[in-house]
Design a binder for these strands. Structure first.
Lengths: 337, 337
DNA sequence: TTGTATGCGTTATCAT
DNA sequence: ATGATAACGCATACAA
């Protein structure tokens, strides 16, 4: 079952391979005759050019790599979708790599992307400069999305982590909460670090309880959200509100609240980072820190095309805003002081 | 910024390109000296073989294509993850294509996969034989997953659609329900068709109301689940239980119930096809038709490797089972007759 | 064990 | 506008 080649097409069409190639790649120097003859032959044979051979000859693969931490995280699924759709507009195929929130798998995917000679790379990386050294050294045009690596010149598109968290804490304290439990993301990620720092700053600003015991370090996956909720709720002086740094940890945490018969919005207040569709399952609806995932994906691709074109685009910070819904009513009895 | 080639490595290592190539691809006929010299050169230069060139020379790309309807559907996100993880075990890179529940985009991805000369293809297809003609004609080893196309010899791994739905309807009628609203999947998919047929059969078997007005045809996306719930609940004699053919439509439908102040498990019973993590948000927990997504992904890859090896494996049907939780209590007041 | 040379399928260059 | 041919980077058959 040997694959067809352009030679077969040329033969069938009665032209040379050069002419066949020109017709196939839309070169202007072709006669009407040649065009129809080749097109007919292609259709009749069901020929498809070999992308590998084409990429080898040209220096481009028309392919971009996308390395994300976890497809099963709805936020990243949405982001992957957004990137892919935008990449289509530029005739790019998206090679998708799922790092599984794991440093080693991330490394492996970076390696694969370089081996595949992607024209550009979009990544939500974890770790530090050393982990990305190979990618940066390779010179492949790169853009960071959602997460960044410090001390690089890599353009990025990120959410305004600090503002979202700040607004959430202000809102909760405004509702009378003083003990706000925080389920943080991993400190190996920029989002994990920035959101935690913003939480701490906001506690200071609002004079809420700044108690280390109110912080649980999770890993952005749901099991750690559940563990965090258990840890926080089992304390002597448990929080009256919970804030989780991503949607999966929120799901895990809320599941634990359900288990314990703590009604969200009644027995405990809850705010989640990221607004995912599944949250509409909740009644009352969840107060969330939302940002525009579609815009994030679009910008990432747009920035990448600029980098590929040799430009050095400015990084983009997308606004995040608090959407207040039913899960954060005023604390009954006012502030616990 | 010309990319390094094996020639640079050979030069640096002081050997011929042939020797360098043999070392790089683990050919046995190499001396210890050559191995270390080449390895050192590779490391020093940061060389990475060009996958395109390698694929062109060999006839294999070490790549499989995965064409799914929608990454944003948690079921398919889980499936993609499972396939990818299993493919890794066989040193396959997974090229991921997201058809967006759209026939045209599906076509385009099949085309891309063939152009990329994937060694094999895993797809959850929509449509009929004609839509898949190009793929089938190409002779690329193919396996269907979740969904199938009738009248093909393509091995598949699918859930036992009928049994799950049947058990759900039996359970609901056992709880006293006679009017069971069904939000169906698109009839352009095998899962949509099989589940709807099973629902109808089960109605007959259980002597529940067999009323065409209880059926709403959705498209497996959440908006259609919401539309379905509205349509069904606005009827004169509305259903007392809702059954939705996938998780996204369930999310949309439950959101509508929330809007209308209908408490799931109290004012209305609900069963969802697919058990996704986000459902743990619900309290009481959701009764679901569950099946093993991980096994599905694993089997798909395993079957594909067999097809690639020239074998003709048997198709696999994975059991689905009803998990009864809090959203389907006995109907207060017994059957409405 | 190693080096040389050829070919994978395509595009681009150079004539014509 | 077209044809012949070299070249892309790598693996392998063949010679040594």
């Amino acid at each position: 079952m040997r694959s067809l080649t352009i030679k077969d097409v040329a033969e069938k069409a009665g032209v040379s391979v050069g002419t066949a190639s020109r017709v196939l790649s839309g070169h202007p120097a072709t006669s009407q005759e040649a065009r129809t003859a080749v097109s007919d032959a292609v259709k009749e044979l069901g020929f498809r050019p070999n992308a590998q051979a084409r990429s080898l000859r040209k220096t481009t693969t028309q392919t971009i790599g996308l390395v994300l931490p976890d497809v099963r995280n709805p936020f990243f699924a949405d982001l992957a979708h957004a990137v892919e759709q935008r990449a289509r507009d530029f005739e790019y195929l998206t090679l998708f790599g799922n790092a599984n929130e794991d440093a080693e798998q991330q490394d492996r995917y970076f390696d694969i992307m370089l081996t595949q000679r992607v024209d550009g790379l979009i990544a939500a990386p974890r770790g530090n400069l050393a982990d990305l050294q190979a990618v940066l050294d390779s010179g492949v045009p790169t853009v960071f999305v959602d997460r960044v690596i410090a001390n690089t010149k890599v353009p990025s598109v990120t959410p305004d982590n600090a503002t979202g968290i700040q607004e959430a804490v202000r809102h909760l304290t405004g509702q009378g909460h003083r003990r706000i439990g925080y389920i943080a993301g991993p400190q190996s990620t920029s989002t994990g670090r920035e959101r935690l720092a913003a939480y701490k700053d906001a506690l200071t600003e609002t004079h809420a309880d700044d108690d280390g015991a109110l912080i649980f370090l999770g890993d952005f996956q749901s099991a750690s959200g559940a563990a965090g909720a258990r840890h926080l709720l089992e304390q002597q002086d448990p929080p009256t509100a919970l804030l989780a740094a991503d949607s999966l940890m929120s799901i895990g945490a809320i599941a634990v609240c359900n288990e314990r018969g703590l009604a969200i919005g009644a027995d405990i207040a809850f705010v989640a980072y990221d607004d995912i569709e599944a949250f509409t399952l909740l009644n009352p609806a969840l107060t969330v820190i939302a940002h525009d995932v579609n815009a994030m994906g679009r910008f990432a691709v747009d920035l990448l095309t600029q980098v590929i074109a040799g430009e050095t685009p400015e990084s983009v910070i997308l606004p995040s805003r608090l959407i207040i819904r039913g899960s954060t009513p005023p604390l009954p009895g006012g502030p616990t002081q």
